[in-house]
Amino acid sequence: MSTCPQSNLIEALHDGRLGPTEAASCERHLRTCPECAARQRHLAAVREAVRAPVDPPTPLAHQRARNALLRAAVAEPHAPPRHRRLALVAGVFFAASALAGVSLWRAGAPPAPLPELPAPPVAPSEAPKESRPVHAASNAPASAALPSSLPAPRVVAPPKPRRVASRPAVAPPTTAPASAPEAPPRASPASRDFAAAMDALAAGDFGVAATRFVDFTAKYPGDPRSDEAAYLVAITLQRAGQTENARTAAQRYLRDRPDGAHRTQAAKIAGAEDR
């Protein structure tokens, strides 16, 4: 196939395996040898084809994939180190008290005693997404925000007022029974609210999702996901066609979180005419 004695050097040149002297002499040779030049063009064409960009994921798809990954990573039972195990226990406790907190809130009581998670950087004890349908209570304010075109929200029976409501759980996580870590993780209120917002986003109810993300950032400013949530406000507004509001939200994100993980994207939205 190849007749030129130099032809096997072309590939080495292409892969950067030649030293500077060899490379220079090989490049000189290329100018005079059509066969080797053709070979080099072929190698370059292959490289170009492989590197040609593929359709990039949209910011929304990226966001969804990112959240799915973090959810899966936390759900994964691979040898959780001690602090995660504790967080899991705490999560179980707080989940138990969550209903209490929510019904209290519904009944018009001040929302003060909502328990805050101890929150290691990645959300502890996420429940698998499908395990918890959107809660009626978290649905109510959101649907009010978007009057029309709500495709029958997935609402479970509204929580009955419960006796436990008067007793906000403050049990320290360390007192949890030893068997607790084996129990399936239950959602914390924050996780549930975040999941509810993500569900609305996934369902295409952008107005609803935006409201829920705003609520989330207000309610759980210390939660590791609040950065995501704040950014997603801008994304969802953008998707809802509210370009002006999206820009405002992005600008707010940049102002409040100058070191936020999404500052680059947010800057794009903040500066964009429309996208």
Partner: peptide, 20 residues
Amino acid sequence: TGDLAPLGELFDRYHASVRH
């Protein structure tokens, strides 16, 4: 060390490359 906090950052950096 079992701390998964950097996973999101890693994803942001490389998900497009990995997908490609």
